[in-house]
């Protein structure tokens, strides 16, 4: 790693005050230190926020749960309230990384992890996300793991998180404090599409600190699942993942949430695809029709066109599982 300075923040306000150009917050460190070793990120200073009192999981006045930004992924996934009321979230977290990494990684850090695009990691190749204007190695290169939705001619990277896909489906709210005070960001607005500024992953501004993630009361616990398709059975990033939550009235879908991972620069939701499910019987044909709505603009590259059919089948399977599921299951 390159030389940097290290300091520990005693409060959130102190952390925000110390944020300067070239400075990064560190909490779990699992993604940041990895990228610093790879020389992809070169902060001049780290502000350690890991001991701030933001690690609680608490009830909200609205009947939901507030997940502290510094609660560890493992503690969140195994929290009894999360397992019972938001089983798709617990399942999504446990589908990601390894037990060691989940013990280290924080919820806030998980939101802000960077893409696993090979070209982003390899400093010998061009990458508009790492070095704006240098070009995209993945377009015309090896692009098996890349985006089929929402990509641009500058960047076809995907967001690697599992947790975020479930948070998108649950319509979580991200709470942030920063130089301009506190604000709340609906989950769908946190991550952005690459467009012509692929170096910017989120709408967060310099000095912003994620303090918590609020889960609304509705957790779709009765009928939900998280399905992750990957190259090996464990400890691999998603080729395609699906968070599905349904509210059922007999065999009819009363409400639906559907979010995909591994397919875009952000967790992918499509209101039209969800609308195509509501009021309809829970049958594979209806699920397939909704999948085709969601994938109507999907575009493959040389090595990843398989993801389009994979995503369609994964959506049908996840919705079928969710429709059948009764009560929270053990992940």
């Amino acid at each position: 790693m390159r030389s940097f300075t290290y300091s520990r923040a005693g409060s959130a306000a102190e952390a925000v005050g110390r944020a300067a150009a070239g400075t990064a917050f560190v909490a779990g460190g699992t993604n940041l230190l990895d990228l610093m070793k790879a020389d992809v990120l070169r902060p001049e200073g780290l502000v350690d926020i890991s001991r701030l009192p933001l690690d609680r999981i608490e009830e909200t006045a609205e009947g939901g749960l507030r997940l502290g930004a510094l609660a560890r992924n493992a503690d969140t996934a195994y929290d009894e309230r999360v397992q019972t009321r938001y089983p798709m979230l617990s399942k999504a977290i446990l589908a990601g990384a390894s037990a060691q990494l989940r013990n280290m990684a924080t919820n806030g850090g998980n939101l802000l992890q960077r893409t696993r695009c090979y070209y982003f990691y390899d400093t010998a190749t061009p990458c508009n996300k790492r070095q704006p204007g240098s070009g995209c190695g993945a377009i015309g290169g090896v692009n098996r793991i890349h985006a089929i939705l929402g990509a641009s001619d500058q960047c076809i990277a995907v967001h690697p998180s599992d947790l975020c896909v479930a948070l998108a489906a649950l319509e979580a709210v991200v709470r942030v404090t920063g130089p301009d005070g506190e604000r709340s960001i609906p989950f769908a607005e946190l991550h952005r599409l690459p467009g012509d500024r692929p170096e910017i992953d989120t709408v967060l501004r310099p000095g912003d600190l994620v303090t918590a993630i609020d889960l609304p009361a509705r957790g779709f616990a009765e009928h939900s699942t998280y399905l992750k398709i990957r190259d090996r059975a464990s400890y691999a990033f998603a080729l395609v993942s699906v968070a599905a939550g349904l509210e059922m009235d007999g065999d009819t879908v009363r409400d639906a949430r559907l979010a995909l991972g591994g397919v875009a620069h952000k967790p992918w939701r499509d209101p039209e695809a969800e609308a195509a499910l509501i009021g309809k019987p829970a049958t594979p044909d209806r699920f397939r029709a909704a999948a085709r709505v969601l994938l109507r603009d999907a575009k493959g590259h040389e090595h990843n066109s398989f993801k389009i059919e994979l995503a369609e089948r994964a959506i049908v399977r996840a919705l079928t599982e969710a429709a059948e599921r009764k009560g929270a299951s053990r992940p």
Binding site: G29, T30, D48, A99, L101, M104
Partner: peptide
């Protein structure tokens, strides 16, 4: 259990 390679001693 954690990966000791991905954390700083100072942390």
């Amino acid at each position: 259990r954690i990966n000791s390679c991905l954390t700083l001693a100072a942390m």
